[in-house]
Design a protein around this nucleic acid. Structure first.
Lengths: 246, 246
DNA sequence: GGCCCGCGGATTGTTGACAATCATACGAGC
DNA sequence: GCTCGTATGATTGTCAACAATCCGCGGGCC
């Protein structure tokens, strides 16, 4: 595996705002900042070793992605996702990943299946460790969309996958059964291999529905959207914010 | 139509960065800033009556949306879209709007059809004026996605629609035939009314394909993606940047 | 004559400080 | 005893100046 220098990239030089945004995004994704926590600018800036200017730029970027909500003269808060948001994330993911899968089928199917199979192997190898499995799951779907070659689908999927991780981190009451998860992904891979658009759509949508149910299992989950003047509108969950790392 | 104050909203107070971002986005969308133009920070800041701080935050937001590209220590430029980008925009739009349409069918179909019919009426009224028609077209699709009730699909669609307008503004060599456009939208509305998912998918995808062909008509347009070492990669269009409004 | 080096102008990236706004706690008034 | 007005503290929003980097151009050297 010799690195060939023929394609030499234009020296990736990311702006500090982008780097800071990546850091914060990662932290939000990993659950380091639980939903609802306020992100003080001075504290974060000091911790990351930058001034408030670049940090605020990074925040605006994250607000645009929908990960943070900004209240004027009040502060920036990590968006907290309710059941409706969980469903919405998976609806949007189904839309994006279905389109990506169709592009895969229409394009170089063999190469796509190869990449998917590799990602699947990583998942199988990490079946024991729940967090590694979540990472591999994330990587699988990211690869699925990236292989489609559509930059816009890719960007959308990246944001949605981060939100998915937020859901999992916030509501991770139980680790998902690894075998069922693997089976679903294998089936998804097969659908691409066979090149059957209808089957891919079905597999993908049922995969998403399963995921939603898994996440929303312990909570009250009315299947009909809205129109629920149910008992208690206030959230019972309000765990003390854990200490920040490093 | 008496305004009822029962639901009184939390007083919409947008941050200046968001306002500035809207302004710039609008200008890019309308073609005031042609693709490839550099946006000087001091000039823009002075023109908008804000300092460079908030302006830079707004820029980061637009970069995150993919409307601008930032070269380090070089400046911010309006992204120029090539043929592949045009196809990609419409692929993504098809994915998003299909999902939204399916949600419409599954939800309150009557209300959705009503909103779509209203938007369609606006289009019909503006059939003569090309720019008004483009606005109405934009509004129709925005309404389609907004009516789905999915905030994520909505956000994606908003960004994609702006990019669509960029394509149109940059390559508007010929006004689209209003009658064909109206017919397609009517058919789309009917598909939602009938509640036939398959038909909706077909109508929507053909609508998108038609739009792509319309835009890419005069240029060389190979139907197969990528692998085109065609003649001239550089764009002939480089009109003098028109003066800024207000 | 052609190529390399260095300088001037301009623009971006970053910083620290100033002004405006909001939440909280305390005390006066009813 | 409860409510309202006010002071205080902290945080956000904004600004102008400083430092770093890059493009274009002229002079020197080969």
């Amino acid at each position: 595996m010799s690195m060939d220098l023929t394609d030499l990239e234009p020296v990736e030089r990311r702006s500090t705002a982008a780097i800071v945004a990546d850091r914060i995004r990662e932290a939000i994704m990993r659950g380091t900042f639980p939903p609802g926590t306020q992100l003080g600018e001075v504290e974060l800036a000091g911790r990351l070793g930058v001034s408030r200017g670049p940090l605020r730029e990074a925040m605006q970027r994250l607000v645009a992605e929908g990960l943070l909500r900004s209240e004027s003269h009040r502060g920036l808060f990590v968006r907290d996702l309710d059941a409706a948001d969980v469903r919405d994330v998976y609806v949007a993911r189904a839309a994006v990943e279905r389109a990506a899968g169709l592009l895969l089928i229409a394009g170089d199917r063999a190469a796509a299946v190869q990449r998917l199979a590799d990602a699947l192997a990583v998942m199988e190898a990490a079946a024991d460790d729940p967090v590694a499995l979540a990472d591999a799951d994330h990587a699988f779907h990211a690869e699925l969309v990236a292989a489609s070659g559509s930059p816009r689908l890719r960007r959308m999927a990246d944001t949605l996958l981060v939100e998915t991780r937020m859901c999992l981190a916030a509501l991770q009451q139980t680790a998902p059964p690894a075998d069922a998860l693997l089976a679903e992904h294998r089936e998804l891979c097969d659908a691409v291999r066979d090149g059957d658009p209808g089957r891919l759509t079905n597999v993908l949508e049922s995969h998403m529905l399963d995921a939603v149910e898994r996440i929303l299992a312990p909570t009250i989950v009315p299947t009909v959207p809205s129109s629920l003047p149910s008992s208690d509108p206030k959230k019972p969950t309000d765990p003390a914010p854990p200490a920040l790392p490093a």
